[in-house]
Amino acid sequence: MSDRSIKTAGTYKRTGLGHWIRQRRINKNWQFYVMLILPLLWYVLFCYLPMYGVVLAFKKYSAMKGILGSPWVDPWYKWFMKYYQSPYFARTITNTFILSFSSLLFGFPLPILLALLLNEVRNKTFQKFVQNVTYIPHFLSTVVLVGMLTCFTNRDFGIVNKLIVALGGTAENWMQVPSLFRSMYVGSGVWQNMGWDSIIYIAALAGVDPQLHESAYIDGANRYQCMWHINLPCILPTVIIMLILNSGHILSVGFEKVYLMQNGLNMAVSDVISTYVYRISLLSSNQFELSTAIGLFNSVVNCAMLVLVNKISKKVSDVQLW
């Protein structure tokens, strides 16, 4: 193979498609492009085709004609207007925002703190033990998690209510108390993901230069000061990157858990955008266009947040995603 190309190298034209291909080594690497065919086909079919399907937000869908053949709606913003004017607009947006913001508020700093504390433990066995224990809940499914919550807080049989009654309170079915929904959602989320989310910070802490600690010790710093003034600033870039990435989800709360925790009594606080979209499209009335429009609105807000936070971070701290 290589022999032949050396022999004939002189006779090749230096222009044309063949030259262009050889220059970029595409002829030698063609098998790599063959490997890429299947994954890229998957991306086209399952990511980019649906992305194009977003035009449905500006159309009147008819099942016979498909997405492409369906006619456009007259004021192009008809479905957005409909969402804006619907009584669910304020409720779903507020609930989504509050849920994801409070999840971020509690779920974001705690893993960092956990990683910093774990890093201070010298007994490796204890450190590994705590680490592995905190990972376990991550492997439970959402259904099991919500099932556990339901069992624990059951009015008649749940252990939480047994405790409350023993302390002199009154038993209640917590899953049906609207005022408890948010704290239960956020609390169980932190319980489940705290350990798992700390992994990335533990990895970052492993990369902190030990010489920094050496010199700080010589200057008389104690371990507490080292943690705050060396370890934390050293992992700050990672922290900021994670914060930027998380801010891109500010208007998307995981559907699975909210939907499972939802019931008729707590709808006022548990109805979020994704459950509303599901309800009006696949569950009951087939309002495909409206739900596409809401989904698009949601994506756009998320993207805008991502770009915005990235910009702010670039200004303030020089750390950025792109």
Partner: peptide, 9 residues
């Protein structure tokens, strides 16, 4: 694309 465009595709 979101829920519905993906579902329809």
């Amino acid at each position: 694309g979101g829920l519905i465009p993906t579902y329809l595709t």
